[in-house]
Design a protein around this nucleic acid. Structure first.
Lengths: 183, 183
DNA sequence: ACCTGAACACCGTTCAAGT
DNA sequence: ACCTGAACACCGTTCAAGT
């Protein structure tokens, strides 16, 4: 399968290594043959993006709603952090991914369950998604060295070297801001 | 000046149109001549990214600190939204932009002024930057059509069609979450 | 009818040849 | 010494020629 071959390349060598010639070679065929199955390179990117989206996490049952919301997004972040190339694909093109919509629906529902008014849920979802995307796409914020080394004060166990924890910190703040909860 | 020529191209025709041949033509010279002034294409991107960063907004004086913080980020967003290609450059490479650091320092100081503990300011800054970057890079969140059309309820004057206002909404929530303020 | 080698129009980058 | 035309090693995409 062409999607499987493309994913093998992209997981092993990154998005820049994903050329049609490389995928063709992986399948033991010429690059021109790929055009029997896809319209262009963009479509191939769309297909592998949807393929990763298939394994986006589902919400866990049972926890309290706010916890469930936070865990879902944190799990989504950690999963996509292992497949950063997917974030790059989503950012460039206007990709429509059916499998991603399942995650989006779950995230929207979790937000409402946690107490977000329905009229704000969609904007809240988008805000969370943009926060996630920003974290995935930019390891180093604008002007790395602002303020010198991260002032690791006592009790500050979240360093920039642990992107998952850093996202978790930001996520909690944004969720609390959306839910209007004081900590 | 080579940077000016490159910016002319990128502003008029977008980042994908920025080829070295095109810039060379703009300057009335061959593409090979550019290598007298820059090491490679990446360096040219870095130079024009730093060039936009020169005009990033400065904080306004006088307002109350929270307002000043919100205005600074909102102005930063609106400015970069007019130069979206810059966000793409920052997202791909590990760009170090001296001019961007001035904005970053101001944003950090504004956060502290607004009451953010120093030990959290850097993480707060990064969270805000990632939210901004996510907004700039992704016009359409994962699976556009979740929940059908944005449920524009009465009093909901922020639609997805106004990216500036949408960012403003998310920004306010994240800032309030960081500052631990209840609305 | 289906597949694909070879070609086309690009790209960033290099380097020997020109001044 | 400085500049650059022409070439090189890539791309995505097309299409006529092969089966």
């Amino acid at each position: 399968m062409i999607v499987a071959a493309a994913r093998r390349v992209v997981e092993a060598e990154g998005l820049d290594a994903l050329t049609l010639r490389r995928v063709g070679h992986e399948l033991g065929t010429g690059q021109a043959s790929l055009y029997r199955h896809i319209a262009d390179r963009r479509e191939l990117l769309e297909l592998i993006a949807d393929d990763v989206a298939r394994d986006l996490p589902r919400p866990r049952e049972g926890d309290d709603p706010r916890r469930r919301l936070l865990d879902l997004w944190r799990a989504g972040h950690d999963y996509l952090a292992r497949h950063r190339w997917a974030a790059r694909i989503i950012a460039d093109g206007d990709i429509v991914s059916p499998h991603a919509e399942r995650f989006a629906s779950a995230a929207l529902a979790a937000l409402v369950d946690a107490g977000c008014p329905e009229s704000e849920a969609l904007r809240g979802y988008r805000a969370l998604w943009h926060l996630l995307l920003g974290h995935l796409l930019n390891a180093h914020p604008l002007g790395h060295h602002v303020g010198g080394e991260p002032a690791t004060s006592p009790g500050d166990n979240v360093s920039a070297d642990d992107p998952g924890a850093e996202f978790g910190w930001a996520l909690t703040r944004l969720v609390d801001g959306i839910l209007g909860r004081d900590r």
